[in-house]
Design a protein around this nucleic acid. Structure first.
Lengths: 281, 281
DNA sequence: CACCGGCGATACCGCAGGGGTATGGGTCCC
DNA sequence: GGGACCCATACCCCTGCGGTATCGCCGGTG
């Protein structure tokens, strides 16, 4: 199977729409239809059910979507890791991904502690949007990442747990609920006038909905203080709060753990030392 | 990166010879040279050192060889697992790979115990040459395998240990050492007149050497009894011994474990039940 | 019920690029 | 120094990928 065919199929399977998939791939729709049909012929299996109004996955198609994504990730990882091993790239030490604005003090402590190790190499910190760290890690663009399961998917990654904490809801100061000592998820779902914020999805698009579009923490805090939204976030962000925003613990929100993750079968001694340092914190 | 280019590079990196690699790929040498050069250009890195007499890997090339193999395996796995999910293929239950002739009684016990489970599905047993099980598993041709680390590589597989045992050396009856109660590796290395047997490598070729070529256990036992070779094997094969062959424990040979292995992130309930059954043995 | 709009498949064409053969140029060995 | 070996280059051909135009099907609509 050729990676090109697989990329095409995955695009169609994700969009469930040949036209949009073709657009995403930067090509016209007919060759895409043909390529997918050819892949089905080669595999000897239908992957998609077409009904001139809609497209859906067959069982085999669902398998190929899942397996194909990991295969394409592996391909991309091979490419990026090779690039990073190239002598031209200044021998870069370690690249670490973390969600912008999250785990700030933990990260600072980690970097300080690691820098104290005489064998430490430079650490390139890559700040990325929420949920992007896993992808960066799986596709070889970084060597290690800080993730927050169960929010982030850690399937297929090697992981060590660093910290576990509860979650709080951020409310505008003066909101009726803001004086309560604790709340439950049901209390803070669909608060009138405070629709949930919308984050960009991996492709940069925003889902439809009433909530404001946000792309970083500062913006989020400002929108909360302006009374435009409220949101449930891990406990640590309390440290970054400013006036106008109140945090109330949400007792039944899932515990959020911070983990340090790296690709399975990593052979990098440097990564191993960084992880070791993190575990000693 | 295209999978075609990667396949070409891996072939060259494994052969360290453009001519042989081209032959293996069923193509002429010049387009292969070009394709690899183009890949290097695209990656912006030299992958191979060419010195008109020999080819060797750069550091980046070594990374790409390792990562590329797993990416190509993942691609192949996506293909095979999709095929096996196809409705056309008689809904196949589980495919299990094991080395022909090894773990016979363990396998029999496992299959019996599993068949007793009312939720059991058919198990297709794939007998393969030594060292092939891992490859079958990684490329999605089977769902589960019995392996023998450290002989077999289990990197990147999920594994449960089933049994650990010592190793014995097989000697022709009447050999001076055959009456000893135990031996050490140094005693049985390079025994005069008994060169180590040669197994086919994955591509079916045999390494050079003085020892006889073998491809299954029966043949091996016969060659030992004929006084042509001797070999260190796991303890269980004593159960299959016939006249003319004597087994003597080798006290300092590495312990061989039998493990049941499956691909990471397997979501098959059937495989999980089979593994569970195996652990209860 | 006829029309229209949306969507995937088919038909056909043009060309980029992958593969083949022939050959060059460097290196080691005798 | 001649020959064998091996990778790179030059050049050509043709496959096959992608583009445009169009068809066929279906569902919603006035």
């Amino acid at each position: 199977m050729e990676s090109r065919e697989l990329r095409y199929f995955v695009a169609v399977a994700e969009e469930l729409h040949f036209g949009r998939a073709a657009e995403r791939l930067g090509m016209a729709q007919p060759p895409l239809s043909r390529a997918v049909a050819q892949l089905e012929r080669r595999l000897g299996t239908a992957l998609l059910e077409r009904s001139s109004r809609s497209v859906s996955l067959t069982d085999a198609g669902a398998v190929l979507l899942r397996e194909g994504r990991t295969a394409l990730d592996a391909l991309e990882a091979a490419e990026h890791r090779t690039r990073r091993a190239a002598p031209a790239d200044a021998p870069p030490g370690i690249a670490l991904a973390t969600k912008a604005g999250a785990s700030d003090e933990l990260l600072a402590k980690l970097l300080d502690a690691y820098a104290a190790d005489p064998r430490a190499v430079p650490v390139d910190v890559v700040l990325c949007g929420p949920g992007q760290q896993g992808r960066l890690l799986r596709t070889g663009r970084v060597d290690v990442a800080l993730l927050h399961p169960p929010i982030d998917d850690v399937e297929g990654l090697d992981v060590e747990e660093l910290r576990t904490e509860g979650q709080v809801v951020l409310l505008p100061a003066g909101h009726p609920l803001s004086t309560r000592g604790e709340l439950r998820l049901a209390d803070v779902a669909d608060l009138p006038g405070l629709p949930a914020p919308r984050w960009p999805s991996p492709d940069g698009a925003y889902a439809d909905g009433p909530g404001p579009e946000v792309h970083d923490h500062a913006q989020l805090l400002q929108l909360v203080s302006l009374g435009r939204t409220s949101v449930v976030v891990p406990d640590v962000v309390r440290a970054q709060l400013r006036g106008g925003v109140v945090a109330v613990p949400v007792t039944d929100a899932p515990q959020v753990t911070t983990v340090i993750a790296w690709p399975p079968r990593s052979r990098s001694l440097d990564v191993a030392r960084l992880v070791e340092t993190a575990l000693r914190l």
